[in-house]
Write a protein that binds this DNA or RNA. Sequence first.
DNA 1: TCCGTTTTCGACAAAATCGAAAGAAATAAA
DNA 2: TTTATTTCTTTCGATTTTGTCGAAAACGGA
Lengths: 110, 110
Amino acid sequence: MKGTNLGELEELVMLSVGILYNDAYGLTIQKEIKNRCKRAITISTVHSVTSRLEEKGYLRARYDGATPERGGRRKRLFTLTTSGKAAIAKMREIREDMWNAIPKVALSNG
Amino acid sequence: MKGTNLGELEELVMLSVGILYNDAYGLTIQKEIKNRCKRAITISTVHSVTSRLEEKGYLRARYDGATPERGGRRKRLFTLTTSGKAAIAKMREIREDMWNAIPKVALSNG
DNA sequence: TCCGTTTTCGACAAAATCGAAAGAAATAAA
DNA sequence: TTTATTTCTTTCGATTTTGTCGAAAACGGA
């Protein structure tokens, strides 16, 4: 049981779900990533990532109960689970600590 | 040619190289990650990641010219390239922006 | 030659990625 | 009412990149 961590894209999807709060589903997640990261991924990619995150227990899904205005299939909305929130928070903390530990000289140009 | 991005572990290795500055090589990188991330990876893993980062142009390697005190093969020291620095800085910026965009309510417990 | 350190090699699992096609559900058109 | 259209979800199969090892090879003193 190795892969208990988050991959790079998995993390971006988690952050997107957090940002979108109560409107996170395939399409909106895809757009969020496109806008913020200037990175085009297909809807298939988003779905395969969200599935994996569900399996890991980092994301929970529910069906949209509200009536859609003009047609369309029910949306599958995602929210972060408690362990999901903890996972991304921890990664952030570790990276920030590492950034702070980099000596200035290592980042100067030349 | 898709994979121009950094993977999760690749990023950690880059940060470690920055932290270690003029003493970044297999062993020290491995330890840095172990200490900071509480994550045990083998030395083989570190080497395969650094190789890939070199190919991507994010890391540059040189051999240690100094005489080793007590035996052992020459070390291969790594430093961040200009594009390498830019790559990790960009990832950091994007993630910070995303974190700031997450509404408080999405992170509260419950 | 022997020992300890470090890198290279070859292999495999997990994550990232896509395209295409098939459901669903609600509404608009016939 | 029946059919078509729209908007999304699901699923499948396939391929490239990343992540991960264990073992072998290469050094460089002692």
